[in-house]
Design a protein around this nucleic acid. Sequence first.
DNA 1: ACCTCGTCCTGGTTGC
DNA 2: TGCAACCAGGACGAGG
Length: 268
Amino acid sequence: MPELPEVETIRTQLEPRLVGRRLELVSILDTRLTRPLDPREVSAELEGARIEAVERRGKYLVLRLDSGSSLLVHLRMTGSFGFKPTSHERAVLELEGGERLVYRDVRRFGTWLVVDAVELEPYLSAKNGPEPLSARFTSAWLANQLSRRRAPLKAVLLDQRVVAGLGNIYADEALWRARLSPLRSAESVDPEDVPRLQRAIRAALRAGIARQGASLRDYATPDGVSGAMQEEFNVYGREGEPCPRCGTPIAKARVGGRGTWYCPRCQR
DNA sequence: ACCTCGTCCTGGTTGC
DNA sequence: TGCAACCAGGACGAGG
C-alpha cells in the first residue's frame, strides 16, 4: 500500500534512471490499467516522448514528457516499478538505451492516465489537498478542515483533499504520535491540539521517507531494495503488543472499513 | 454538503 | 491435507 513515503522513495530512485530518456516502446498488458481509455491510444501518446521530470503529488507519480503531456501513475494497493522481469507485469516501458521499466501490480487496482499540460494542475488539485511537507500544510488549514467534519478523525485524515499522501499506515502512526484517538470525531479535536497533530503527520511521513518506506506484502522499490519502516511501526499491525509509550496493549478497531491500531490509554 | 458502505482485485492466511 | 472463507485497503460511486 504505497503511501507518500513509498511513492517518494520510488520517485527518488526512478528520477536519475528516467530523466532525459526517450520512451521507445510502451506495452500495456492489462486493459484495466488505462480504463476507460483504450491502451493503444495511451501507448501512442507516450511513445517517442522524452521524460523531462519525475515528480510526485500526494500518492501520484508524475512523469512529465517533452510532448507537453504527463503520465500520472497511481499505484493503489500493489503497484510497483522495477527493472527486471517479474510476475504480474501490467505494462513495460522500453527506454532509449535498451533498459526496460516494468510496472507490476498483483491486484490490478493501479491506474495510468495521460493528461495534457492544461489539465495537469487542475486534475491534481482536485484530487489532492496540500502537500504535508510543504509550507502550505499549516495548522490553521488542518484545524479548519477538522472543524467541519463529524466523521472519525482517522477517516478525515485519509481524505486526500484534507492532506495529500496519508494512507492507512501513516494515519495510524501519526495519530499515535499526536496522542489522539482515531475514533473520535474530527470536529471534537481541541484547536490547541491541532499543531501537535500537524507536526505528528510530518514526523511520521519523514520517518517513513528516511527508511525508504515500509515493505509489507507487495511493496518493493525500483532498485529492488526493501524499505525498513515496518520495523519501526509503533502501532500499525501490532494488536496486543505493548504501547511503546505507556505499555498498554495496542487495540484494533475498524474505522471507515479500515483496520485501525491505536493505544486505548494514551490516545485520547 | 457530509457520511457510510459496497465494489474492484488477487494471493496469502485462517479455520474447519 | 484440502478447500472455502476471510482479509488486506485507495479511490470512487451509490444511497441515506
